[in-house]
Amino acid sequence: MSQYKHVLIAIDLTDESGQVIEKGKAIADRNGAKISLIHALEPLGFAYGGDIPMDLTSIQDQLEQHAKDKIAELAAPMNIPVDQQHLLVGMPDSEIHRLAKDQGVDLIVVGSHGRHGLSLLLGSTSTGVLHGAKCDVLAVRIQKED
């Protein structure tokens, strides 16, 4: 079994992100590995086709600030330093691959909602990360909180 040196945990900032962080941190701790968090925020222009006749800059800035705050909130109990918390704007799978390559990551941890059927096993971001990754990818099954 390989020993990981840098674990990148990709989170979507939902309430279930803590489950993904806990699993990734446990693996990092067992391996003495560096741990980083990433959330990739799609630009509003992507979501709305770029044909909106209005300036979305202030809304995008607010979304980015909210995401930074949420990442910090999730990272705090796990003692993940600010310089290892990454918010990137772009297509999530591409940004995760780029950061993983730039940082020398050897394990990417993503969440999976475990829907039925092979095509629904992973969400679109998780599937994109899995298919384009140059390192190991761990899909953590999200458990419903009762």
Rank of each mutant, 00 (worst) to 15 (best):
L120H: 15
L37I: 08
K34S: 07
Q143H: 13
L88N: 13
G123L: 07
V7D: 04
L130D: 01
L56H: 03
D12E: 05
G45I: 12
A76M: 08
K25T: 11
A139Y: 04
L122H: 00
Q103C: 09
S17C: 04
E145I: 05
E16K: 02
L138T: 02
L63Q: 10
K68A: 03
I96A: 04
S2N: 12
Q84S: 11
N31L: 05
H86I: 09
D83N: 14
V20G: 02
L56A: 07
A76G: 01
M78S: 14
C135N: 08
P53Y: 13
Q3A: 13
A47H: 14
A40D: 10
S126D: 06
Q85D: 09
E64F: 04
S2R: 14
H66R: 13
T14N: 07
L44G: 02
G128E: 00
Q84G: 03
D83W: 05
M91I: 15
K5P: 00
G18V: 06
V109E: 05
G49N: 10
D69L: 10
F46N: 14
M1L: 13
L56W: 05
E42L: 14
M1A: 13
L107C: 03
P43A: 15
G49S: 10
I35M: 14
L41M: 14
I142V: 15
A40G: 05
D146A: 12
V7N: 03
A67E: 11
V137C: 06
L138R: 00
R98F: 12
A10V: 04
T125F: 08
I52P: 10
V110D: 01
D61C: 09
Y48S: 03
E22N: 07
G32D: 10
D146V: 09
V89P: 06
H131A: 05
P53W: 12
A28M: 07
D51Q: 15
I9E: 10
G111L: 03
A72V: 01
Y48R: 02
G50E: 12
I80C: 08
K134N: 13
D93P: 06
